[in-house]
């Protein structure tokens, strides 16, 4: 199973590496959002410092949604979904392989955005452990939710607009939990940051369990 997961992930990452969509287009666009948000808040440094966690996750939400959409555009292009269905790779491996590839891409996006937040919003990290755990938990949750909802909309003609419409409400709890956890990690809120990070892990675990069980059915009926 591990070999199958790596095969699917390697293929997705290779497609992405060749196309350079994630780093060449999505990351700069998400960075631009950080800049626009800074302007929208009148470049008020204290406001930006307070809201940095939330603004960061809004940019991740936007960029992540584009990456999720792209991940399934590749599968529906040129009838690839049929080949995807016809492959002997098990549905759980397909689900985990695509999730792993998305995890890497969204993780890279977060690194870029993290650097952007540090430079633009002048933040100071007080709890690196919480920051890293929250970022990893959020990235896992984003990835598995994205693959689950991506396959549901993959067969639809209107998926370009429907996927974000379906996905964003699902991702909002991750965004909220991530924002709270980051605010604690950045020292702007003395709140239960670890509880919020744990919530993201729970969301990730629930969606992974659903994905492992339902991905095959969704792939067939999509």
């Amino acid at each position: 199973m591990l070999a199958e997961i790596l095969l699917v992930a390697r293929k997705d990452l290779r497609v992405e590496w060749r196309a350079k969509i994630a780093l060449g287009q999505v990351a700069p666009l998400a960075l631009l959002i950080l800049v626009v948000l800074a302007f929208a808040l009148d470049a008020n440094s204290s406001l930006l410092e307070l809201g940095a966690g939330g603004l960061y996750w809004v940019a991740v939400l936007y960029g992540g949604t584009l990456l999720i959409q792209r991940s399934f555009d590749v599968e529906t292009d040129d009838g690839n979904m049929d080949a995807f269905r016809m492959s002997v790779i098990g549905a759980p491996s397909l689900f985990l392989g695509k999730s792993l590839a998305l995890f890497v891409q969204i993780g890279l996006l977060e690194l870029v955005l993290g650097s952007g937040v540090a430079v633009l919003y002048n933040v100071r990290v007080v709890d690196w452990g919480l920051l890293l755990v929250a970022a990893v938990a959020g990235t896992i949750a984003f990835s598995v939710c994205g693959v689950l909802w991506g396959v549901m909309s993959a067969g639809l003609r209107v998926r370009a607009t429907l996927l974000p419409l379906l996905l964003v409400p699902v991702l909002v709890p991750i965004l909220l939990a991530g924002s709270r956890a980051f605010e604690t990690a950045l020292g702007v809120r003395a709140d239960a940051g670890w509880t919020w990070a744990s919530l993201m892990l729970v969301i990730a675990a629930v969606h992974t369990a659903i994905g492992l069980g339902a991905f095959g059915f969704l792939l067939e009926e999509g």
Partner: peptide, 25 residues
Amino acid sequence: LLGHENNLYQDLWVREHVEFRAAAV
């Protein structure tokens, strides 16, 4: 199965694609 469409990943190199399909089946 070979349908009307070719089921090809446009961004992959030719050899990479066939290698992936081989492994996938």
